[in-house]
Design a protein around this nucleic acid. Structure first.
Lengths: 346, 346
DNA sequence: TTGAAAGCGCTAACAC
DNA sequence: GTGTTAGCGCTTTCAA
């Protein structure tokens, strides 16, 4: 009842295993008759090569590892869908691991995937990762890695990111155009690429519109809003400012929903008292109360392009230094949380 | 720069590979000195055994395969978190695959995982799966499988499910208590266990309250609401009934959000004209417009219990027929979509 | 055109 | 206590 092997076929047909192997992999020098015989028998017995043996043999596995902060987040699960769809078509399997934003788990996952002989790695950095040696080391040893979304400045390889600067710039400009002036920014830890890029876009939009950048309107949430208290505290501080904000631009899913929850609890009217724009791919933005204005990333495409780059790297190793960074456009979807029902109708 | 092997250690220390192996795996008969030597050198060289070789050797991989319909769904991603947390602690790795509710992909994923020598399988059935041979076959060959959430009647093994009947019963009773009488049920394909269980609870609640069950109030969505048109059509049909429903009980995330979107589009007042209760773990139920009354499943615990059962099965193969089915309680969280703001305040 | 043999990394039965 | 050897499934020289 065990899986059939090349050996079984050889024995049954009274030929050698190497002949069977050649027949199966369509080698050039082989008697068509023998080949036919083998193929038919293999088909009949439903033979499947053992991928473990193959991996052991040549350290290739036709699989790629994905390391992301978490799955329970629409942006990342869309990313995965994009990754899977392409990988599947190109004959690669995808193995997913979550770092839960922990540096240790990111390292552990990386090691495991490497020992499992994945052919390449797709990574979105954990928010607590500052040391990149585990990736640098692998790259030097020749393992293809492509980063996406949360990418390291220090490592040279293909990268796929949303145009975070522009997305932020648009969101902030939009708030300014609707008459807001004291725009706060609730964001993730500062050492993430997405944080600095989004912050820069926010800042530039303010300055382009003659509003001075004020650091006290910016709050960094080290847990990215995953800890409720953190959200409450940050927003509490903002509201306690001498001139509390009249708008909040939130930088992630969790920060956005957390912010909405806190404002709702405090019975603050959105957008009249405080307008909200979120940098988020949350699926039900339309159904929220109020419907949420959002900067949406093309997560699916990001995933697709990243695997394509990775697989290209795997199959055609290229000279160093010839890497590309792809910026994908975000889109601002305007809803009531920033402009109100009345304004939206006109 | 390649990974160091047992052979390298043997050569360096001028001993045999088997001695190294013994030292490393703490075998009984070995000279403490030799052992120390080996251990230190291995440590120094950062030796890591090659799991591929181990798998090839004894067809064990210390990893378990998970096959679920999709990741981009809060219920399933919470399930995965539960699974991962426990598996990680017990030294197992988790490999996740999505069936996208397709029978073919479920079979393909299963085959792949098996060929990769996972030690066991955790499965939530695709909605389009009716033939279970791929699982039955594996079980007969001795592969441990535990089903969760969407489970097959025909296969005897451990199963972990929410108490779907009771959850539905509660939801429906709740709607009846708030004065609704024409309660529709929007649900998934009929051959899923969750569908029949939830339908039964709904039906029983109606009958216990003297309301006759009316098949025309039940709509089965073959794509589970993933296709927007399907939702719209189903709800359109319900609204076109001579006596349109005054409440809708929706059986899944997608069906719930889809239903809300359609009602909102048609400017139907919730809950005054139609009340909504969803069987859903959606994370932002509180923030929806209106806040959503939901039957919530203990997804995390379900995942945890399922892996525990699976790993127990892997490590202590047991006699057939001694399987358990665990029912975990759901909780009904009442919000405005079923009772309205006024009623909720009192 | 085919077969024999070695090797990928590791373990274990069997010698010594 | 340690070394030798075979074998997990497969590919690939090297010979014939």
């Amino acid at each position: 009842m065990e899986a059939i092997t090349i050996k079984d076929i050889a024995r049954a047909l009274n030929i050698s295993t190497s002949t069977v192997s050649r027949a199966l992999r369509n080698s050039y020098e082989i008697n068509p008759e023998t080949k036919k015989l083998v193929m038919e028998y293999a088909e009949k017995m439903n033979y499947r090569p053992n991928p473990i043996a193959l991996s052991l043999k040549d350290s290739k596995s036709k699989s790629i590892g994905v390391i992301i902060p978490e799955i329970a987040n629409h942006f990342f699960s869309q990313l995965i869908n994009g990754i899977e769809s392409i990988a599947y078509n190109l004959g690669y399997h995808v193995v997913i691991f979550q770092s839960h934003d922990s540096y240790e788990r990111e390292v552990a996952n990386t090691n495991y995937l490497v020992s499992r002989k994945v052919d390449g790695l797709l990574v979105s950095l954990a928010s607590l990762t500052t040391n990149l040696f585990h990736f640098q080391d692998l790259m030097e040893r020749g393992l293809p890695i492509v980063f996406l979304d949360r990418v390291p400045k220090e490592i040279e390889t293909h990268k796929v990111v949303a145009d975070n600067f522009d997305g932020s710039y648009q969101a902030t400009s939009h708030l300014i155009q609707t008459g807001k002036r004291r725009i706060a920014h609730l964001t993730s830890p500062i050492y993430l690429s997405i944080t600095t890029e989004r912050l820069a876009g926010y800042r530039k939009a303010l300055e382009d519109n003659g509003i001075p950048f004020d650091e006290s309107y910016v709050r960094y949430c080290i847990y990215g809003g995953k800890v409720v208290a953190e959200n409450e505290e940050a927003i509490g501080e903002l509201l306690a400012l001498p001139e509390p904000p009249d708008a909040i631009f939130t930088a992630s899913d969790r920060l956005t929903t957390g912010c909405l929850a806190v404002l709702q609890k405090r019975r603050i009217k959105i957008p009249e008292e405080i307008a909200i724009v979120g940098f988020t791919n949350i699926s039900v933005a339309e159904l929220l109360n109020p419907p949420l204005t959002a900067v949406v990333q093309p997560a699916l495409e990001m995933g697709q392009q990243a695997v394509e780059l990775l697989i290209r790297l795997i199959e055609h190793p290229q000279k160093k230094g010839d890497y590309e960074i792809r910026f994908l456009q975000t889109s601002l979807i305007t809803r009531e949380s920033s402009v109100g029902k009345q304004a939206l109708k006109t």
